[in-house]
Design a protein around this nucleic acid. Structure first.
Lengths: 186, 186
DNA sequence: TTCAATAAATAGACTGGTCTGTATGTTTAA
DNA sequence: TTAAACATACAGACCAGTCTATTTATTGAA
């Protein structure tokens, strides 16, 4: 034994979490994962029956990590408006930390075929939870304010990845502020 | 000769246009392209020096096709508000025709590494032109109305791909209408 | 208009590499 | 003693890209 501080399964998952996000799902091979995780190939297939299953577990792990960090930002605020703005600040924080690699789930969406229901469902569930997150903050409003904020949030993530710049987040925040003043968002 | 109605280079590009969009860039191999285009491998490498160059030409061709079709929708309208809404109708039309495969450029963005400047620049140029398209319609407004519309447009495309449903487009259209009534968009 | 020269397109073998996944046998830890 | 983890070779498929050799099409000149 190499006296690793964490068990092989977690080393694999941690490495997949990093590599899939940095390089993409298809661009990352099993061999690179086991090499950087310091794990034998047979060990990987002992814990995950295929690369796709590892992909699903990757999304599950990312889901937990991502929402936990998001809530660290939003829970610190009390007012509705400030909670929303804090969510956008979280996006900017992630961009800085992860070099504008964007959303793991949307990146995966672009890589899979539409008939890959296993992965597609994981992605949809994550986004459904994010929609619910904004609905919980804003409540059900006739004008679908929560979904408008959700869509601004999503494009802020995508467009900042695309332009490698935080301006889409700043513009989205400004729009949210304006819409609050106009009482479109309450 | 097989009496093909169009020359090999166009057959390759047409096939790439279809396959890259349907299956993704990495998931589509050169062999499938030449096979479905009815072209010899040496012919492909006669017209394109690498797969990446074909990828760039693919984006260029998509850019022309996409904007031409978009303008067919928007040019038919005279009022600012109706022009914008027509752009969203174009999105819904594309979703129907292409089975909710989303935006070719954003899909490519998710597949490439951030240091692939050749492809990244093509993608950025396309989106920059789209931003300009909305700015041309809406004019320069203090509140960045054009960029807000741009961001709603982008997420409408992405989210309808994700949920395989037109609701994000409908909600974005409703938001645009509301913002017009509130004089946020003029 | 015919014919030779040139260019374009063809088929397909081949290289060297990567991919996911399996199988074998050994070592370590519980 | 049992199970987990190890290293590593291997299979079979696919990848991008090169090369050879042949056939087809075009073009220019006599």
């Amino acid at each position: 034994m190499k006296h690793h501080p964490i068990v092989p399964r977690e080393r694999i998952l941690d490495t997949a979490l990093r590599l899939f996000h940095e390089q993409g799902y298809h661009a990352t091979g099993i061999n690179q994962i086991i090499s950087e995780a310091g794990v034998a190939k047979a060990s990987l297939y002992l814990h995950f029956k295929s690369k796709e299953e590892l992909g699903i577990e990757y999304l599950n792990a990312r889901q937990d990590l991502w929402f936990t960090q998001l809530r660290l930002f939003t829970d610190a605020e009390k007012k509705t408006r400030k909670k929303i703005l804090a969510a956008f600040d979280f996006l900017a924080y992630v961009n800085e930390n992860e070099h504008f690699r964007g959303c793991s789930f949307l990146n995966m969406l672009s890589e899979i075929r539409p008939d890959n229901y296993a992965l597609l469902t994981s992605i949809q569930n994550h986004k459904q939870e994010l929609r619910q997150f904004f609905t919980d903050i804003l409540g059900e409003q006739k004008n679908d304010a929560a979904d408008i904020v959700y869509m601004l949030f999503e494009s802020a993530a995508t467009e900042s990845q695309l332009f490698k710049n935080q301006w889409p987040i700043e513009k989205a925040k400004q729009a949210v502020s304006d819409l609050c003043k106009l009482k479109y968002i309450k």
